[in-house]
């Protein structure tokens, strides 16, 4: 059994750190892990993706369309763009967050107004949360991604001590407590 997690969002949103935390948690749980990331040209404000797989044995770091157990999106229309990667019964975890592309600001394209309706139609299992506002309430906008990771954590067979270890290994020591609080908040959603 291989667990497939697809993370998506916009370059600069912190997707690499989120991928690092999830893959580290799986590593600490003793699984074989792969994590594929987007770097370079695609990163400058473009759509980005990270793919994490873990199980007894993993060969390919890439996820086949229709086989992700979890789709987690840091920006809500990016979840729609990547929806075809999710299994029919997979969990979608989506931050209620719009990053307006320049194509929209220039007037060359429109940002959809019915995002929530589209998400509800596409994802039978959906967790949708305004992570940024909640992160600001918790004291730091950067905690938004940790809330999202908490939201997806229940769908994965990884014990809490592994998530804790992964957070400790990935964020600044001074922000560990705040990140754990954000994670636990997400876990309750």
């Amino acid at each position: 059994m291989i667990y497939n997690i697809l993370l998506c969002g916009v370059g600069g949103q912190g997707i690499l750190l989120a991928a690092k935390i999830i893959s580290k948690a799986a590593e600490l749980a003793g699984y074989e892990v792969t994590a594929k990331e987007t770097h370079g040209m695609a990163q400058r404000g473009g759509s980005v993706m990270a793919q994490i797989k873990f199980g007894e044995k993993v060969h390919s770091p890439l996820i086949l369309e229709g086989s992700a157990d979890v789709l987690a999106s840091l920006e809500h229309i990016e979840a729609i763009r990547c929806a075809h990667y999710l299994k029919p019964d997979g969990l979608a975890v989506v931050a209620k967050q719009a990053v307006i592309p320049v194509t929209v600001s220039c007037g060359n394209a429109k940002y959809p107004q019915d995002v929530e309706a589209r998400l509800n139609k596409l994802f039978p299992k959906l967790k949708y949360c305004d992570c940024v506002t909640k992160a600001l309430e918790l004291g730091n906008v950067r905690l938004a991604n940790t809330i999202l990771i908490g939201m997806l954590s229940n769908a994965l067979p990884l014990p809490m001590e592994c998530w804790r270890g992964a957070i400790e290994a990935s964020v600044k020591p001074s922000t560990v407590e705040a990140n754990l609080m954000a994670f636990n908040y997400g876990k309750q959603i």
């Binding site: 729609i80 929806a83 592309p101 394209a109 139609k121």
Partner: peptide, 10 residues
């Protein structure tokens, strides 16, 4: 639902 989404070039 993704067909008309705005492109996001770098």
């Amino acid at each position: 639902e993704a067909v008309d989404l705005p492109a996001r070039p770098p």
